[in-house]
Design a protein around this nucleic acid. Structure first.
Lengths: 247, 247
DNA sequence: TAATGTCCATTTATATGACGAATAGGACAT
DNA sequence: ATGTCCTATTCGTCATATAAATGGACATTA
């Protein structure tokens, strides 16, 4: 039972009741609140959260669009298996990382980065335009400026990686802008522990330099090293599972 | 102006009015129907398609969840820039590939595969369980059996790649199951032209063999070759743009 | 004139109540 | 044991009314 009040829902995401309820339900689903029992009916949801049926219906429709649930008459609304959740939806990702944070998930996410970002860097070295290059440099400069650590450097770090993804001129890679941003921000409680390494300025500079010089292979390798270092740190934090290596 | 009737909407996706309208609006948006003029208001949409406001609202809410539009009071509903569309939503991807099919998009999608699938194959070589291995082999056998070509071999091909992604035991890679399936099926009109190459049995067998033998590096290399061949064919079909190489 | 505050029109957001359609599961007959 | 039918339940759809938000017009004021 979650039993939120309308006021709380409104505060939740700063928008409106529908988005507030969406957020509440999303979190509840990813934390497994409905794994055994069935998902509440329209009427029950409306009653529990003190909102109208319209609001619940629209929230549930959005959950459907993100793959978390499916609804059929008489059967009711049912939570879909995790495999059909859209992990690249920033809402879903945020819910997952915030509530049930796990090293496993962080490792798996960085395995993804390790596949995506080096290729994106290589493409950026070939295709990035002046704007992209400027953004990449700007991100690097911000990192240097905020070298003290903390939230500053995290945002600068994100800006750098986002700029590279965008510079790839491939919309599928560019799509990961939000994903990477969301994931890095959501997992800050962990990554803070390994700061100083993950935000290694020289390694980032090497990526930027290779892209500027239009050297895709060097850019790929430099970016690969960067992400690999993060993966090494994660494995080091949990030696047991290190079997899942990825080089 | 699209002006569908409720009956047409129902047929569209075989489900209900809401999903039918979602589909119609999604297609209209990705084909740029609303790029200059503004998106219709709730009332207009309801009138144009002969459905109630509830249906339009829920369809629009789903579009919102997929990042295609945003809605605010007084401002109305506005189509978001392409960069914020969720390309990894199978609906969005299907709409994009069906209506405005382009070699560019196909190339970019295969650049993504070229980043993802080799790493997934390497992980699968390390982590796939017996079920996964069986599925990979089954896909390969289906390909051999359907060697005549046509739709049979495409489905077998998809099954093979999906099995590898699943075998990676990484939910982010596994997520691409639907994406790869949707994209391959949607781009069949083009890929048919280059069949026989893209579905090279020996190359697929090499991937499967490396995974069975638990050789991640070989699996990665074999999968890389497989996707690279597709990319080469795409570049060959459109020599001008081949500058966007990706090795 | 320029800055600021007030009001208004428009559009989405929310609420409510009613009815329709589909179907899971049981009752019943065979 | 099997197939058929019925019914209760739940989502799907519709209609209408009211609230909230906001961009812009307009008035006010320094």
């Amino acid at each position: 039972m979650i039993d939120t009040t309308p006021a709380e829902l409104r505060l939740n995401l700063g928008r409106n009741l529908t988005h507030g309820l969406l957020d509440a339900l999303g979190r509840a689903i990813v934390t497994g609140q409905y794994d055994n029992g069935a998902f509440p009916t329209e009427a029950e949801l409306a009653k529990q959260h003190g909102v109208s049926r319209s609001v619940t219906r629209e929230a549930v429709k959005m959950l459907t669009a993100k793959g978390l649930v499916s609804a059929r008459p008489r059967q009711g609304t049912i939570v879909q298996p995790r495999s059909s959740w859209n992990l690249f939806d920033t809402d879903v990702l945020r819910w997952l990382l915030n509530r049930k944070f796990s090293l496993d998930l962080l490792r798996q996410f960085n395995q993804l980065r390790s596949a995506i970002e080096p290729e994106a860097a290589a493409l950026a070295a070939l295709l990035a335009d002046d704007n992209d290059l400027a953004a990449i440099n700007a991100g690097l400069e911000r990192m240097k400026a905020a070298e003290t650590g903390g939230e500053q450097i995290l945002e600068a770090d994100i800006a750098f990686h986002v700029a590279v993804l965008k510079g790839s001129k491939n919309p599928f890679f560019a799509q990961f802008q939000d994903v990477v941003g969301t994931a890095l921000r959501s997992s800050i409680q962990f990554t803070n522990r390994l700061k100083g390494h993950s935000a290694s300025i020289p390694d980032h500079a090497a990526v930027a330099h290779a892209i500027m010089k239009r050297q895709p292979d060097k850019a790929r390798a430099a970016m690969k090293k960067l992400v690999s270092d993060v993966l090494d740190l994660i494995d080091a934090a949990e030696p047991g599972k290190a079997a899942a290596k990825r080089r």
